[in-house]
Design a protein around this nucleic acid. Sequence first.
DNA 1: GCCAATTACGCAAACGCTTGCGTGGTTAAC
DNA 2: GTTAACCACGCAAGCGTTTGCGTAATTGGC
Lengths: 340, 340
Amino acid sequence: MRKVVSSGQPTIKEIAKRLNISVSTVSRALHDHHSIGLRTKARVQQLAAELGYERNQTAIFFQQGKTFTIGILLPELSEAFFSSAISGIEDTAYSNNYTVLLGQSHDDEAREKQIIQSFKQHRVDGCIVSIGKNTSNYDHFEMLRQAKIPVVFFDRIPDLPNIHSVSCNLESGTVQAVDFLLKKGHRCIGMINGPEQLMASKERAAGYIRALGKHRLKYDPELIVNADLTAAGTDAAMQHLLTLKRKVTAVVTFNDYVAMDAVQYALKQKLEINKDITFVSYANTPVSSYTAFPPAASVEQFPYEQGQAATNMLLDILNGTLPLNDYQQRIMESQLVLHT
Amino acid sequence: MRKVVSSGQPTIKEIAKRLNISVSTVSRALHDHHSIGLRTKARVQQLAAELGYERNQTAIFFQQGKTFTIGILLPELSEAFFSSAISGIEDTAYSNNYTVLLGQSHDDEAREKQIIQSFKQHRVDGCIVSIGKNTSNYDHFEMLRQAKIPVVFFDRIPDLPNIHSVSCNLESGTVQAVDFLLKKGHRCIGMINGPEQLMASKERAAGYIRALGKHRLKYDPELIVNADLTAAGTDAAMQHLLTLKRKVTAVVTFNDYVAMDAVQYALKQKLEINKDITFVSYANTPVSSYTAFPPAASVEQFPYEQGQAATNMLLDILNGTLPLNDYQQRIMESQLVLHT
DNA sequence: GCCAATTACGCAAACGCTTGCGTGGTTAAC
DNA sequence: GTTAACCACGCAAGCGTTTGCGTAATTGGC
């Protein structure tokens, strides 16, 4: 039999041989088991230290069927929102002795499936995932369910029954945002929303409509336009809004990038920001306050905290604190932040 | 013997039993081994598909002594520079069938050591690391070396002999930046640099001085000020520069955030940007182009590409293409990008 | 001084998979 | 008809660790 690898790392067996005791004794000594004599324990531990023994996690993972690893799948690692979330996830995973496996889907459904597959093969204990923009088939998550690998969806959550999720209540934040604009006297408020099928888009729209209702104002469907979040899409949306008969004096944009593109467009149309037209956005970049015309206010979604919350929920499931089939949808409150 | 886990996942053994053949045959059939008959192969593969068989990677990792996993340790996952780098790393790892394990040190040396320890126990095949600001002891990396786990340092590289590294030559970028300003006619150029001990600061200063030398200009030490990267520090630095007898008409700032703070300060002093004073910066945020007064130009460091390069170097080592002891320091060129 | 409890350790199986080698059986070459 | 080559498959070891159970030896209670 060929020895595949000679990592050179000392093993428990090595220690046993040198000390002329059995491997089980060594294993127990290393775990401070009560049935091992103090002398033996000391001898084992000392030799282990001398040899620089380190347990082979891969062996333990295999033997225990548990990896203390969670897979985290996000659309884009470099987006500020997600990178803050990763930070929150890693921090809480770390302090609970879990490790984090990472994958980015780039909003590509096929790649998303492959990564989930890879996570599953890696036998991760659980997953945290934010689905891609155009993911419409959820077979891969069904597989995870069958494999009894818990998943906590996060931010971009699929429209599925019986799932765990952590998300931000964008509806309430949107209500706050629209309220804010209404109180400032705006009566014709446009909204550049995201792709229709996105939950995030639905919530924004719902908040928008609810806020109008609160103030007994009629909702004009033409004022909400679904865009694709590209600069071109935003331009088209702006063009649509600015050519309506009623004059749009404020716009709620899907996120900061859209806001900035929209601002650029407005400037090209010789509009004066915060006078002719006011923008409110959803925060996803730390530097929007530095921009020339930052949105008058923005809805903060606390990505770091969402990451923490999702991880905690997953850990609760893994610990058995939270039953796997007790599906929880934790909805965190978003909050409108004024940019004076 | 207690069955620790009953994951329910079908195993190779299960398939063998059902088909009344040996596990080895099943294994080979699944690997499309030539010594297995077509009929058996088909039967095995079909049953495997039916059962939803999936190989247990943890078993394979353990058996093979290789995990196809690389550990990546960074100071702060949520910083734009690093999150782009992660993105580049994940992408190239993914396309080479490697998976990425993640850890952030928060510039805490103890945590850095723990994460490296964890990576080692996970038996990662290799590591990519950017060290913490105040890491001064390198024992943990020495351990990796002894365990024959290759490391590629990246961006923030330690002052050690015999290491692999990928970093960006900020000196050349700085020369370009100062060149640019000189060609525009500026003769009194200030620099708001970072903390003195940082390699990054030294390179910037060196580039500044070299560029002046190229043009046979005298270097005035008063024009380079070391700041702490906070808004207050930047204000103080600006104040210093603006009260010199010679009139500073351009400033090179440590990064985009400093630039934006400096711009704010200049505006408060009723200076006109790009007329009374011009800024050049080092890119570390994707949105600086949206700001009111973006720097006239900035030195791009290509974090995504650096991440790719580091990963490729690591993969070359793992493939044996690049000998482990053939230490390479890849220095990528930074590049001045004009923001017209 | 006898039985029970406790202490201190070893045996061996099991986790799932890969792989070198062995072994019949068939085919082809001369 | 003998030999060689090849085909198709099984055996079993081994990767490092954990753990239920068995077993001596020691101790303590009465």
